[in-house]
């Protein structure tokens, strides 16, 4: 398969801070690469460079077969970009926004209008199409922004944190829209802070930290590396620890860890909520008093802890503590 997006050794520095420190990536045609990392990892910088909004200080990249430096305008006519902050004009209506973008892609007046109407329908915005975007909810703005990226039916799409800041309902709507899009064969580079999002949408996930790739694989491969789901139980009395351990051993897929001091038991499991309920029933039947019980799924934090030895939040604090970080925050919101 051809790599539609290909980057080698991308470097971008802001003062002393290396926002990108030799990033390599490749996205084969028709697949989705999830670029996963905490704030300040360099995700947005990478997208801005690949979409020709920023010039790299080092390295090279091709998008849709064109060099991002010497053939930038060719690249721009083959890509669609939707950013972290919905870049739609709030004084224009939804229709006017899409119509304008269509004309700027050179579609011509008639085709631009038809495309705008079609996209409004596809993104469930037909009723709001004649209203100024100012009146839209956050989720509607994002959908309109994504529609803007699709106006010219570009073969390559870049979505920078498409669901950051959305409420859970809108996030799920957005995932459905993106999943449908991808099933149509678009090549997509998606950045996200959420493992769940990458898991759901991406074929392949590239974890980056401090502007460098630190791991790559499918969601399952990464989770296996991180250590899957586990049930955590805190019993109310130390005497119950042994009984709880034997209940959990029945559902666990590995050794149950017991912390005497905090009265916490941790059991690696597979099967999600089903297993949690099974564990609950067992604990209830055994008459064990429980202070807390929860199913823990691997999160971005877990990925980071296992891959880098520091949590995602630490990465942010570290980035902010570095000199010149202010510049990075200003130019590179993620």
């Amino acid at each position: 398969m051809v790599d539609v997006i290909q980057a080698r050794g991308l470097v971008k520095t802001y003062g002393k801070l290396r926002a990108l420190d030799g990033l390599d990536l490749a996205v084969p045609e028709g697949t989705v690469l999830g670029l996963l990392g905490p704030n300040g990892a360099g995700k947005t910088t990478a997208v801005r460079i690949l979409t020709t909004l920023l010039t790299a200080d080092g390295g090279s990249a091709q998008v849709a077969g064109y060099d991002i430096g010497s053939q930038a305008s060719k690249v721009r006519s083959h890509i669609g970009v939707s950013g972290q902050y919905a870049a739609v004009d709030e004084y224009l209506t939804g229709f006017e926004n899409l119509d304008m973008v269509g004309r700027l892609y050179g579609l011509g007046a008639k085709a631009a209008r038809a495309r705008a109407t079609e996209l409004l329908g596809r993104f469930s915005l037909e009723d709001a199409g004649d209203r100024p975007v100012k009146t839209y909810s956050g989720g509607m703005r994002r959908r309109l922004d994504l529609a803007g990226a699709l106006v010219a039916s570009p073969p390559v799409l870049f979505l920078d944190e498409p669901t950051t800041g959305l409420d859970p309902r809108s996030r799920i709507d957005m995932w459905e829209v993106i999943a449908e899009l991808v099933s149509g064969g678009t090549t997509l580079l998606l950045t996200t802070q959420y493992l769940e999002e990458a898991d759901r949408l991406a074929d392949d996930i590239l974890v980056i930290d401090h502007g460098r790739a630190i791991a790559q694989g499918t969601a399952d491969e990464l989770k296996a590396q991180v250590g899957g789901e586990r049930v955590e139980v805190v019993v109310s009395s130390r005497e119950d620890l042994d009984a709880a351990r034997s209940v959990l051993a029945e559902v666990a897929i590995g050794a149950v860890q017991v912390d005497d001091h905090t009265r916490r038991l941790t059991a690696p499991v597979r099967g999600g909520a089903e297993v949690l309920m099974q564990a609950l029933r067992g604990i209830d039947a055994a008459g064990i008093g429980v202070l807390d019980i929860a199913l823990r799924r691997p999160t971005l934090d877990d990925v980071f802890l296992s891959l880098t030895g520091h949590a995602a939040e630490d990465a942010i604090v570290e980035a902010e503590a570095k000199p010149g970080a202010a510049t990075v925050k200003a130019g590179d919101p993620a």
Partner: peptide, 17 residues
Amino acid sequence: QKGIIDRFRSLPMSRSA
């Protein structure tokens, strides 16, 4: 500030438009 320039700059339109 609103990111609209980013949208414009990612489009295959004239740089001075």
